[in-house]
Amino acid sequence: MEKTLDQFSIGEKGTVKRVLAEGKIKRRLFDMGITPGADIYMRKKAPLGDPIEVTLRGYELTLRKNEAICVTLEVEDK
């Protein structure tokens, strides 16, 4: 099943399928390691639910839902 990163609930895991963004944001996501094939684990949400914190490639990254919506992941069906 495919799902965008902003839809993840805490503790959910997925593998990046594609990143649909433009310019600066796209490059930044790529530079930080969000590329197809990367495993992402949803760690937590900030107070008020946004931004979110994820673990990928062995480190913690924070990004907003606005940016997370650009990242589509493959998640295992429950």
């Binding site: 931004p51 913690e60 907003r64 940016e67």
Partner: peptide, 9 residues
């Protein structure tokens, strides 16, 4: 502007 940032341990 976007907010994509590493959180150090």
């Amino acid at each position: 502007p976007p907010f994509i940032m590493e959180l150090p341990a």
